[in-house]
Nucleic acid binder design. Structure first.
Length: 252
DNA sequence: AACATATACAACCGCTCATAA
DNA sequence: CTTATGAGCGGTTGTATATGT
């Protein structure tokens, strides 16, 4: 029963990776692809733990990584996503192509936290620092059988809006985002109901759905309603469907 | 120039979850 | 069904570099 240990820690290198180690890892993955991290170090001739190899590849060596400074738009996107998702760095990274969870986490802790503090905003709650503790809205992923998002609120006095789907009061935590959530298994994706403008369909891009209009990432388009390839508009967290498939959120 | 402190980020640690055995 | 492992995630630490004194 069970499997053998992942690696012998006594015989593995730790700390910063050398150029030679990087080259070995890159060469191996180019040839064999990302496979079993456990067996990779031995196969690639690396004295590293598989976990360490995975981290090095994902956070630093992957060819599709976007290196360099974060743009102002990325900053704002991270802030908005964080206000929705909290410290779910992998989910946030999933919405920022070329960025890793580790990179975003570090950037948050070193730059954005301070930026928000300077704006007088609590980086944890995303509310003005002097404001009393808000009602907490929790988003919990319920059992797989149900596959629904439950949105709960502890108390309510102000700033409430009624979710069409939940039929229960939900307090806005991020005022410029309407968390009109639905979720269902992918197979049950219902027909998209895009905005119609005179026989044509307006599709909001992800950037606009998050309130970042006029960004360079804005790809809002007036599309033909009969098109089968692009009839869906971005919705919550940029999902190209009106039904949230939470599993897609976990892509990375 | 030398030292202290702050900052940035790569890497590690420990945990959870899904799943193989 | 139970147990151990692999993979992945988030928090934390370590270290190199920048900046201030």
């Amino acid at each position: 029963m069970g499997r053998s240990p992942c690696c012998e820690k006594a015989h593995t290198n730790k700390g910063a990776w050398t150029k030679e180690e990087d080259d070995r890892l890159i060469a191996y993955i180019r040839t064999h692809g990302e496979g079993c991290w456990r067996s990779l170090p031995k196969a690639a001739g690396l004295l590293r733990c598989g976990k360490s190899c995975r981290l090095r590849w994902i956070n630093y060596l992957r060819p599709d990584l976007k290196r360099g400074n974060f743009t102002e738009e990325e900053d704002e996107l991270i802030i908005k996503l964080h206000s929705l998702l909290g410290n779910k760095w992998s989910l946030i990274a999933g919405r920022l192509p070329g960025r890793t969870d580790n990179e975003i986490k570090n950037y948050w802790n070193t730059h954005i936290r301070r930026k928000l503090m300077n704006r007088g905003i609590d980086p944890t709650t995303h509310r003005p620092i002097n404001e009393p503790a808000p009602d907490v809205k929790t988003i919990s992923f319920a059992s797989k059988e149900e596959e629904i998002i439950k949105i709960t609120t502890s108390s309510s006095t102000t700033g409430l809006f009624m979710s069409k789907e939940e039929k229960s009061p939900v307090r806005e935590r991020c005022p410029d985002l309407n968390l009109d959530l639905k979720i269902s298994p992918p197979s049950q994706h219902q027909q998209e109901q895009p905005l119609k403008t005179g026989g044509r369909t307006t599709s909001l891009c992800f950037a606009c759905s998050l309130g970042i209009q006029k960004s360079k990432d804005c790809n809002c388009s007036i599309i033909d309603g009969t098109s089968s390839s692009n009839t869906t508009g971005y919705d919550f967290l940029g999902l190209k469907t009106s039904v949230l498939d939470y599993r897609r959120l976990e892509m990375k």
